[in-house]
Amino acid sequence: MSLLAIENVEKSYVIGKIGVWALKGIDLLIDAGKFVSFIGPSGSGKTTLLNLIGCLDKPSKGKVLINGMDVSHLDRKSSAKFRGGNIGFIFQNFNLLPVLTVYENVEYPLIMVQNVPAEKRKIKILELLEKVGMMEQKDKYPDQLSGGQKQRVAIARALVTEPKIVLADEPTANLDHDTAYKILKIMHDMKNEFGTTFIFATHDTKVVGEAEVIYTIEDGKIIGQTARNAGGK
C-alpha cells in the first residue's frame, strides 16, 4: 500500500464572484521513504496540493488517503492532531517562532503537540540539532541566524516528531546556491536515516535534481511524472 494516495482530487476557490479551479482531477500515489517533487509554474496548483496533503485545506472533491486513512474531511481538531503526529512542514520563509531559541523552536511540537516527557525530548532535540549542525547555535534566537541556519532549524523541527511525511514548500527559495545544496543534502540524509517521505513544491532545479519522483503540474493538472534514482542519477 502506498503511503499517500490522492484520488481524483479537485479544489476550487471563489475569488470575488468568480470560481477558480486550482486542482482538477489529481490522482497520484507516493510510496514511503521517497524524495518527491512537484514542479510547475507559479499558480499551477503545487502549494494547493501540498496544503491538501498536509491537512491544512480540504479538497472540493476526491480523497486524500495517508496510510489508508481518508484525511480529506477531518474537522479542525482532528486535522490538527493528525498533522501533529504525521506531517512535518518546512516553509520558504522558515517560519520559526521569533520568541523561542533554536532549541525551543525544535522543542515546540514535542511540548505543545505531542506532550513528550522532558528527558526524552532533550535527547531527541540534541540528536537532531547535532545532525543538522546547529548544536552550537542552540541558544540563539532566529534573528541571530542566517537563512541557511534557520532552514536547518526548520528541518530539525519538522523531523523531531518523527512524521511520516515532510512537506516542503520552496525550501531553498530564500537560500544561496551553496547553502541550498547543503540543506538538500541534510534533507537527503534525514530521508535515508529516518525513512521519511519528503514532498517538495519547487521551481528550484537543485531540488528537482535530488528528487526520485517528479510530478509536473500545470493549470491544476498533473501533466507529467518522472521517476529517477536518488540524486537525479
Binding site: 498536509g54 481538531k77 490538527a80 511540537p109 503537540v113
Partner: peptide
C-alpha cells in the same frame, strides 16, 4: 503568519 505556523505544526485550537 505565526498562528498559521503553530497551527500547521499541529497545535490544537484550544492551545
Amino acid at each position: 503568519g505565526e498562528i498559521g505556523t503553530i497551527a500547521s505544526l499541529g497545535t490544537l485550537p484550544g492551545k
